[in-house]
Design a protein around this nucleic acid. Structure first.
Lengths: 128, 128
DNA sequence: CGGTATCCAGCGTGATACTG
DNA sequence: CAGTATCACGCTGGATACCG
């Protein structure tokens, strides 16, 4: 007989219960990956993340900064600008991120197929 | 000089742009992990996921089923019951999931510390 | 036992316009 | 250049009660 699932397995205070795979908000992972190859300025980030409005981008960047994943630096020299870069902590997140991305790319088709056939059979159920 | 970020890096249709690390909804990852050691009945899942209301649990299970990650089986023998189990696709997600969980457990303290010091310094900014 | 029905609040997200 | 302000909305997630 299989063993029962422990009742406190996903206690609210246990780190492993804190949405292990949903780091941050909607755009967090993409931002991290944009900073993979070095520091980037705000306006640079806006290019690949053109679907994100400035407000939301700033919001996400602040959240990542708060969690110690990225560092925001205001440069006040001849050409004033702001740069974002990964902290060591942020850098350490690249690996799980890469693993997750690899999974997505490998299995995305399967998932879409499953979704389509599920929707089709569900629609038939409703019709019949 | 560093190279610019490609404009289409996170095109809407590219799998890698589809929130690589936010698989499914709030409880998806936890449910997958509950099914790691074999099939489970609805009422079994409710034990470790006691913080999830039945409605939301059903919702999440349906979503996972739709994406082909779990299989729902209605048994109609002497003791009628429903069982959920991982599909091969769902099973393949355990690895990225484990990597992500390991990261959380290793770096959770750092993240919380960063958060606290950020909040403190921000509060000081507002006060001053 | 394995769910639904109904209603609702919060918040994450977004569009648009404006600023030091 | 690097944001903020304001407004609004959809959708997720939750409380509670009920059902075959």
């Amino acid at each position: 007989m299989r063993e029962p699932l422990p009742a406190d397995m996903f206690d609210e205070l246990c780190p492993s219960s804190l949405n292990p795979i949903r780091f941050g908000d909607k755009w967090a992972a993409l931002i991290i990956r944009c900073l993979e190859s070095g520091p980037r300025r705000y306006s640079e980030l806006r290019v690949p993340l053109s679907r994100v409005t400035p407000k939301v981008l700033t919001q996400s960047l602040r959240s990542l900064e708060r969690d110690g994943l990225i560092k925001r630096t205001v440069h006040t020299d001849t050409t004033p600008h702001v740069e974002y870069e990964l902290t060591p902590l942020g850098h350490s997140m690249l690996e799980p991120l890469a693993v997750a991305c690899a999974w997505s790319e490998q299995h995305w088709d399967e998932l879409l197929d499953a979704r389509e056939s599920y929707d089709n059979s569900t629609r038939l159920d409703q019709a019949g």
